[in-house]
Each structure stands twice: as C-alpha cells, then as structure tokens.
C-alpha cells in the first residue's frame, strides 16, 4: 500500500518496515503519573521522567504511552495509536505501547488528571534513535551510486509541526542526502504534503484532518529546505487530501500514522 506518486521518473523507496494496523487506536483524556525517576537513578539527571497513561474508553484497559516521542498535555484529549509491547515490564501502571504515537486534540478539553507515583518508578527516558545531530556531525547516509530517494516525516493528527528528534530527523536526512549527492546531480526536490481527510469515528469521536494541513506541512518543509540552502527553483510542491497508507520507515509500522506525512523526494539525475 504505497501512496507515493511517481513524478518525473521511477522513484526508489526508503522502505524498512511494513505498515500494519496498529494494535490500539482510541481517543481519551491522558493521565500523568508523577514519578521521579532521577531520585533513584542518579545517572539519569535532567532527563524526562514521569509516566503518561491513557485508558481506552471501550475496554477500560490502561495503556502506558511513554514511548511516544510527542507527549500528551493533561488538559487535552489525545489520539493514541500504538502496538502492545509484548513482555514489557509494567513500570507505570499500564500496558506498555511501543511504537506509539499520541496526538494532542486541542479542541477536546480534559480535566487535569494526575496520580502519585504509588510505587511505580517509570523507566529511563528514551533517547531517540532519530536524534538530529549538530550540522558538523557526519550523517549516516547511503554510499554511491546515488539514487532517487524519498524521506517521509510523519506528523501528529491535524498538525504541521515538525516534532524535534522525530519528524525533523526525516527532513534532516533528506537535506543531508541532497548535499551528499551534490546539487549538480539533483534535478529537483519534490515535497508532497498529505492530509488524512477521510472522516473516521474513533471512541465515538469523528476525526478528520483539515485539507489545509497538507499544504501547511509542505510550507514548513519548504521553509526549512530554503534556509538550508536548497534553491527555490529546484523545489516542486504538491498537497493532497485522502492520504493513503505508506510504508515509510518513519511511521514505525503504524499504519494510520503513516497517512499523516509528507514525502520529500530527492530526484537524482
């Protein structure tokens, strides 16, 4: 199930995983459990701690969504999409999800719910495998011969914000790939924004992304491409609704997440 549009020649895909339906997908108010990991783990000073939990309203099952790189806001509802992490220890008081994404739904206010630690320790915060290094650090990119490649940052629901060390990693990879290939060998960079505009009812809530968010995703990416030195006349843009599922590695195999993306295709001559 590939939504990549072929433009100007055959495109090679950057495929690492196959998107499948995620194990759980629901909307609910999040719960913050105020654990304080560093007190018992002095090696983890200054890193994010605490637990984020969300109860599935249909099953009552409490899930631990801490592995979501974009954390909830306890004042708003969240859309949870994730896979159950089999065999994972319960460190927060819920079934661990991972990979998992949580999208804040700013139009759904929630009572602020927080719990005491109650013996739960949380666990060492994740260090993203998608850590965006400073510019002077060499990227791990493919060796020659170079080919046309697509990098597909994903987004939270109805958002065009490039989440740090998640979606900006894919964009960074595209930019440094462009530089590695060399401007003389790239005919264009095609940016295609997608929005999951098809309405769905999840936990009794009808959700559909705005069509405009597809263009907003493009605009943000183009702003960054220009600031990073890619010439405007080398950039081609498109924005579409009715996004289909993609196999992009940046969705971590979460099928519905993969719809909310942009495709940045570096077209190599």
């Amino acid at each position: 199930m590939i939504a990549l549009r072929i433009m100007g020649g055959a495109l090679a895909l950057c495929v690492a995983t196959t998107a499948t339906a995620q194990d759980v997908r629901f909307v609910a108010c999040p719960i913050y459990r105020d654990t304080n990991y560093h007190e018992s783990n002095p090696d983890h000073h200054g890193r994010r701690t605490g637990c984020w939990l969300v109860d599935d309203p249909e099953t009552g099952i409490r899930y631990d969504v801490n592995d979501s790189w974009s954390k909830p806001d306890f004042a708003y509802g969240v859309l949870v999409e994730g896979d159950i992490k089999e065999g994972a220890e319960d460190t927060c008081g819920g079934i661990q999800l991972g990979p998992v994404r949580t999208s804040i739904l700013y139009d759904r206010e929630c009572p602020r719910r927080s719990l005491m630690a109650e013996g739960y320790t949380s666990r060492p915060p994740l260090f993203s495998e998608r850590y965006v290094m400073p510019g002077f650090v060499e990227r791990d990119l493919p060796d020659p011969p170079y080919r046309t490649m697509t990098f597909s940052p994903t987004f939270d629901f109805d958002s065009a914000f490039m989440t740090f060390n998640l979606s900006d990693y894919a964009l960074d990879q595209a930019i440094y790939y462009y530089r590695q290939v060399g401007a003389d060998n790239v005919s264009k960079v095609i940016v295609t924004g997608w929005a999951a505009t098809e309405p769905e009812v999840i936990s009794g809530v009808t959700l559909a992304e705005r069509l405009e968010v597809a263009q907003e995703r493009v605009d943000g990416i183009v702003t960054t491409l220009l600031r990073m030195g890619i010439p405007e006349d080398r950039i081609e843009t498109h924005a579409y609704g009715n996004a289909e599922v993609s196999d992009t590695e940046y969705a971590d195999g979460l099928e519905e997440t993969s719809r909310r993306r942009a495709d940045i295709t570096v077209v190599v001559d």
């Binding site: 913050y32 105020d34 200054g46 790189w69 806001d73 989440t163």
Partner: peptide, 13 residues
C-alpha cells in the same frame, strides 16, 4: 510544555 513534545506537565531540572 508545548509544542516540542515534552508534554504538559514535564518533570525536569
């Protein structure tokens, strides 16, 4: 707490 993804609230130093 917004919009980086650290969450609201976020415990840190």
């Amino acid at each position: 707490n917004q919009p980086l993804g650290f969450g609201n609230p976020a415990r840190n130093t």
